[in-house]
Design a protein around this nucleic acid. Structure first.
Lengths: 132, 132
DNA sequence: CTTGACCCTATAGCGGCTAGAACCTTCATG
DNA sequence: CATGAAGGTTCTAGCCGCTATAGGGTCAAG
């Protein structure tokens, strides 16, 4: 006989907000196994594990859509894992692209920050640089 | 006598979409100097410059709210430029924080990608790592 | 005068939540 | 058994910075 917990308990156990869990449900990621007569959602360890999985995957910056795919794949032990690889690989590429952008941005902001020694906007190199 | 242009011409001149320009107007960033009898927005060089300013500032990753502040400051030549500095500085800090996060993320994704040599999900280290 | 390119407003959607209103359920206590 | 607090329910709207769509009106050239 498996223990059943409410959404609040699941929230606490996984360090997720109850509203977020409901949101994930609406996105098709986790559903309660059943409900009380009064309509309270009830979950088991399986859902807790699923939520932890989601948290880890989200921590990697994956979209809910990707997380959903991963969950689907994880459920099917005999599935080929090429799709898993490609989800991770594409995310890595996105992260690298974003890193490049941000590094460029850092240089620009740093340069801008250095160049302003003025007191008023009239002489401000930053404003000047933006206005050109 | 200054030349007046329509939103489409302004859009082309600044490589911005007309819808976006209207959106900026709703956010209080740029307004047409006047309108035709039929209601068409009309702009001048001043608005074109303003839009270019916005584009540059947005390129630095600044929020529309920050851009709005910068525009306000740029309009007042006698204003002290400390506020300008701090907007840029805070953005730089945000970018650096994000960079740190993303670098960490890159390492994690890279490690994950390396570690999967399996054929099926059953042996997939990625799924395993997420499920733990 | 007609055509076709352009413009107008208003509304809804994206992602991933978060906040609030208005109400209902559960459970420990008196 | 009644009560009240804590926690649950659904629904709707908001955040950001656009983008897309519908259903119209305007403008300038031929």
């Amino acid at each position: 006989m498996e223990a059943q917990i409410t959404i609040g308990q699941l929230a606490k156990a996984t360090d997720t907000k109850a509203v977020t869990i409901r949101y994930y449900e609406s996105a098709g990621l986790v559903s309660p196994v059943t409900r009380t007569e009064g309509g309270y959602r009830l979950y088991t360890d399986r859902e807790r594990d699923r939520l932890i999985f989601i948290k880890r995957a989200r921590h990697l910056g994956l979209s809910l859509e990707d997380v959903k795919s991963l969950l689907g794949l994880a459920d099917d032990q005999s599935a080929p894992c090429g799709q898993v690889d490609s989800i991770i690989h594409e995310q890595l590429e996105r992260v690298r692209a974003r890193l490049k952008d941000l590094q460029q941005l850092e240089r620009e902001l740093d340069r801008l920050e250095q160049c302003c020694q003025a007191d008023t906007v009239a002489d401000c190199k930053i404003i000047e640089s933006l206005s050109q």
